[in-house]
Design a protein around this nucleic acid. Sequence first.
DNA 1: CTCTTGCGAGAGAGCGCTCTCTCACCACCA
DNA 2: TGGTGGTGAGAGAGCGCTCTCTCGCAAGAG
Lengths: 338, 338
Amino acid sequence: MTGMTTAQRPTLEAVARRAGVSRATVSRVVNGSTTVAEPIRAAVHRAVAELGYVPNLAARSLVTQRTDSIALIMPEAATRVFSDDQVFPGIIRGVSQELEAADKQLVLMLAGSPAGRERVERYTTGRHVDGVLFASLHGADPLPARLARLGIPVVCSGRGLGDSPVPYVDVDHVGGVTRAVRYLIENGRRRIATIAGPQDMVAGIERLTGYRDTVATAGLPQLVAYGDFTRESGAAAMRQLLAAHPDLDAVFAASDLMAHAALRTLREAGRRVPEDVAVIGFDDIETAAYTEPSLTTVRQPILELGRAGTRQVLRIVAGESVEPALILPTELVLRASA
Amino acid sequence: MTGMTTAQRPTLEAVARRAGVSRATVSRVVNGSTTVAEPIRAAVHRAVAELGYVPNLAARSLVTQRTDSIALIMPEAATRVFSDDQVFPGIIRGVSQELEAADKQLVLMLAGSPAGRERVERYTTGRHVDGVLFASLHGADPLPARLARLGIPVVCSGRGLGDSPVPYVDVDHVGGVTRAVRYLIENGRRRIATIAGPQDMVAGIERLTGYRDTVATAGLPQLVAYGDFTRESGAAAMRQLLAAHPDLDAVFAASDLMAHAALRTLREAGRRVPEDVAVIGFDDIETAAYTEPSLTTVRQPILELGRAGTRQVLRIVAGESVEPALILPTELVLRASA
DNA sequence: CTCTTGCGAGAGAGCGCTCTCTCACCACCA
DNA sequence: TGGTGGTGAGAGAGCGCTCTCTCGCAAGAG
């Protein structure tokens, strides 16, 4: 029906005929069984090479019930919100590296519209992949837990909201923020504000918690404005903070993008950074080293987050059990802004 | 053998029994054939819903010879080089949107190591996907042409080097650069330098060509240093240019990242932008609006590049023929740096 | 020399689906 | 009434692979 002139691909059968053995033997050789005599194995390999045989994955899946592919699911918003930092590419690279090592395929699904969500659900519950990795979850998505209940291997990279029984990997948000805010305090800052992230994401919530606890412990006031991790929202929040607390002497922003915007907003307001106001961000995106002044920030190991999440999924797929939570360390990177 | 307690998924057979019809009829209903009487169709739909039936894609693929998935192949370097801009996420988003609309899956392959390349080749030539889209090709990769010769639908998003017969979509590099450099000339700049991109990529080559042709036409000197699109390389190239041509009064950088680094390097060298030296970049990444001063740049429609490439692949898959080249327009975005 | 043992290779039964072919059935016309 | 279409549904043959089961055969034991 289509105009495609597909050359007929050789099948196991063809290889078997050529090598003068049975299909079963070819299958054994192709799948690396050791119970095949050397000369026969060599003959099969030769036939495979001569014919350019490549196994038909669909046929294999049909009988093995495996697909050798893993789905990575991200809300499409993540690619927009983070369009300018390395979170999105970093996760993908990590996942990709780990899957490449395991010789599995990566099926990427950006769930944007409700239709897209429905599609993700249909695809994953239909067992078209061996396992599922969720990243950058917003709100309390019920899908991961539902998949887990169906017995489908699933892991969240970046913990989801709500106490679902789904294993996750995440970075140490609170620890990183605590170190950052303490650093500000130790350097004499007393009016420390924060530009918090979206409160429907664990990353947003925990970074705020880390801030609140640390300033409260030090007996300092909590000066909070909210953003959504983007520059635009960071600029607006910074203006708000300046209006409400003109005497602030430090800002912790829950993302580098927001910190970047804060830097510019502060300059526009005539404040010097770090002399008048110290600024610390979170993420350590590449841009952080190139802002004016360069940005002191909390580094999170994004690549490793993707890798670790993938490893956990693969372990579950392999029938192993995994720890319910894996927390990766964060680190305060000192530059010029604080 | 694995510890998985997979609930047995219902098959077509089960649905057929439940609805009291034959497998063939269920298949017709599921695939939307119109030749099924309404009451029977309803009964089948009810049975599907009650059983939670989801078709087994492997089984379907086996007989239809389709996989309903498309591979997007990028050199892994792209995710590193572009880690901080929107090219990588932008392409992916565009591809994803278009595939979602077509209800196809996206298989993402980042070809890093030679082993990874071999893997990509094995996977794509094995017809495990219906079509292939290459993005950000480096050098003269023979793989696209080889796939095309095998009859596999393939398109390059961002033209590859060498004159392969593979259809491609790309942006109007030369046109954009020409407009940028002309703009500099019209504003009285006479010592216009360029920080060129890597010369093993079409994007790098054509942007340099656009520069050379335009300054040559105006009878101006060609002041060239080379980078690889990254900030680091941009800073080095800028230093080189300043050393070799201290009297330069403008710089066109082949990427925004390099332009960004140039901005900082110029400041460090005591040059004012744009008073002493005008700077124009290429890409229009989000950061461009937040540099000091904000960056005048050539915008390329990245999202659309991904979408257009995907649409072409889908058309080839559908048996239609496509134009050998599709060029998307670029646009000069004026900000403060020039 | 016969019997067991064990190992390497083949036979064949599906995995779940699509699609062609066939057939039953119901008008409708001559 | 017999013939003729047309239409809707079922039967059944695979798609290419894996894997269990069976069997042949060589080697060692009795």
